[in-house]
C-alpha cells in the first residue's frame, strides 16, 4: 500500500501533473501568480479544499445517486472553500484583503472537481485524501515557480522584499505582472518541462 501511495503521489507531481500535463486550473495559475505571498496562501487553500473534498466525496461515493453526483461534489467543494475563506478572513486579514475574490474562485477550480470526479468517486477515502493532497501539491509548486519568476522580473522583489544586488539595477518587466506575462511564464515552463524533464509521449521517465 505505501508503495502504491508513493507512486500515486509522485505521479501528480510529475507525469500526471494537473498544471503542465492535464493543463487544469489555468485560470488561477494566471491570476494569482504575480506576487509570491498571495500564491502561497492560495495554494494552501487549494490543497486543503482538494484533499477534504476528495475525502468527503469518497466517503459518500456509494450513496451519491449518479444523476446528481456533480451537484453534490460542487456543494461539498463550495462548503470547504467558504470555510477556508472564513478562516483566512479571521486569521490572515491582510492577505484576505489582497486575495479578494480569488479564494472563493477555488470552487470553480477544475483540479478540485477533476480529482473528485476522476478519482474520489471510485476509490476509498484515504487514497482519495492522498490523491487530493498530491494534486494540490503538484499544482502548488508549479504556481510558486511561476510566481517566483513573475515577481522577480516584474517587480524585482521576492515576497515583497527587495533582492540584494538585484533590485537596484534591474529594470522591471512590467508585462510580467500583467496577464500576458503569466501566459509567457506558463508556456515557457511547460516547454522546458516537456522538453527536458517529462519527455516521454505516454508518460514520465
Amino acid at each position: 500500500m505505501p508503495g502504491k501511495i508513493k507512486k500515486q503521489f509522485l505521479a501528480s507531481i510529475g507525469r500526471d501533473n494537473p498544471v503542465f500535463v492535464q493543463v487544469l486550473g489555468i485560470c488561477s495559475t494566471l491570476a494569482v501568480t504575480n506576487v509570491l505571498e498571495n500564491t502561497v496562501v492560495m495554494c494552501l487553500g487549494l490543497i486543503f479544499a482538494t484533499a477534504c473534498s476528495s475525502f468527503t466525496v469518497s466517503l459518500l461515493r456509494r450513496q451519491i445517486p449518479g444523476s446528481i453526483r456533480m451537484m453534490v461534489e460542487t456543494l461539498i467543494i463550495a462548503a470547504y472553500v467558504i470555510i477556508v475563506d472564513l478562516v483566512i478572513q479571521a486569521t490572515l486579514p491582510t492577505i484576505s484583503r489582497q486575495l479578494g475574490p480569488y479564494v472563493g474562485l477555488i470552487i470553480t477550480n477544475c483540479i478540485v472537481m477533476g480529482r473528485a470526479e476522476a478519482y474520489a468517486l471510485n476509490n476509498p477515502p484515504l487514497p482519495s485524501l492522498i490523491d487530493g493532497v498530491a494534486a494540490g501539491v503538484g499544482y502548488s509548486y508549479i504556481l510558486m515557480i511561476i510566481a517566483f519568476f513573475r515577481e522577480l522580473t516584474g517587480s524585482a522583489t521576492i515576497w515583497g522584499h527587495a533582492v540584494p544586488g538585484f533590485s537596484s539595477w534591474w529594470v522591471n518587466w512590467s508585462i510580467m505582472v500583467m496577464a500576458p506575462g503569466a501566459f509567457f511564464a506558463l508556456a515557457g515552463l511547460i516547454w522546458i518541462i516537456k522538453t527536458y524533464i517529462v519527455t516521454d509521449e505516454t508518460g514520465g521517465k
Binding site: Q63, L75, I76, L86
Partner: peptide, 16 residues
C-alpha cells in the same frame, strides 16, 4: 439526498 447534503454543508459553514 441533495437536501440532506445541503443541510449538513450549510450547518458546517454556519458553525465556522
Amino acid at each position: 439526498f441533495m437536501t440532506a447534503v445541503t443541510f449538513v454543508c450549510i450547518s458546517l459553514v454556519g458553525l465556522v
